[in-house]
Design a protein around this nucleic acid. Structure first.
Length: 265
DNA sequence: ATGCCTTGTCGCACAAGA
């Protein structure tokens, strides 16, 4: 061990154009080595990469018009960039971006994931979510064969357990808390991934999302849906984890907050 | 609660989010 740590974060920023100042302020404060963004809501050509490059970052995007879209912001340039989740060539939604980064101690593979919301459950959106979870399972299993530090980070749109919601009874009919969604989450975990936030703080609230509506933030009506899943080789290097909850109280906040880990590097 | 906010779109309201 060199004694250094690699700081990796994930944040659903809810629109990069509306969040340039907020995101820039957070990058200055948190100084992550790698940041995974979701819901950039921008095509690649319109992504304001200059603002982040001015802070010393490389910018890699996988966007689409209006909705969805993911990005990787990194102090070191990415290698082996993969855009899109394998398993369905007809899927045109930009929800998956993966790359490899060199560190002081080998490489780390990082994915920025924006899982489908899936509501309402009686619509076609819910089976799309479950199919996407199945595809993620298959791809994650294939990546585990590399036996390297791997971080699957992002907005999973899954509330894993009742402890991950302030009012779990309010979510029983929601796609985020359906038995099928939670079952798919458990199957992914059972492949051998470590839920970094829970591993470090088993009993804390650790909410990552508070709705803009009905004073959810003021009432602490939150849920934990942004997760960082670590391969065994990444989990072996886990030093600490946390959330930047104070960012939810800033001007023009996203409805999600940054979630981060530090890996020995 | 179909509501409550917020963002993006080429809008003069709407879809989507969670």
């Amino acid at each position: 061990m060199s004694g250094h740590t690699l700081r990796i974060a994930t944040w659903n920023i809810n629109g990069v154009k509306a969040r340039i100042d907020t995101v820039s302020a957070w990058l200055r404060e948190a100084s992550p080595d790698i940041a995974c963004f979701q819901e950039i809501k921008s095509v690649d050509e319109a992504f304001p990469g200059d603002a982040f490059e001015a802070l010393g970052y490389n910018v890699t995007t996988h966007g689409q018009k209006g909705f969805n879209g993911v990005a990787l912001i990194s102090k070191k340039p990415p290698e082996d960039v993969r855009r899109g989740l394998p398993g369905d060539d007809s899927d045109e939604q930009a929800r998956y971006l993966e790359a490899v980064f060199s560190t002081g101690d080998g490489v780390v593979r990082v994915a920025s994931i924006y899982l489908p919301n899936g509501n309402p459950v009686e619509s076609e959106k819910f089976p799309y979510k479950l199919a996407w979870l199945d595809r993620l399972y298959g791809h994650a299993r294939s990546l585990l064969a590399f036996e390297e530090p791997l971080v699957l980070a992002g907005d999973y749109n899954v509330i894993p357990t009742p402890a991950d919601a302030r009012f779990p009874e309010n979510w029983t009919g929601d796609a985020l808390f359906q038995p099928q969604s939670r079952g798919a989450w458990r199957r992914l975990s059972a492949l051998g991934f470590t839920d970094a936030s829970r591993a470090v703080a088993p009993r804390d609230e650790l909410f990552t999302f508070w709705d803009y509506q009905a004073g959810a933030w003021q009432k602490n009506n939150g849920i934990r849906i942004d997760h960082m899943m670590l391969s065994p080789q990444a989990a072996d290097r886990l030093v600490c984890a946390g959330t930047d909850k104070h960012v939810r109280g800033w001007e023009k906040p996203s409805d999600h907050i940054p979630v981060w880990i530090e890996l020995a590097a």
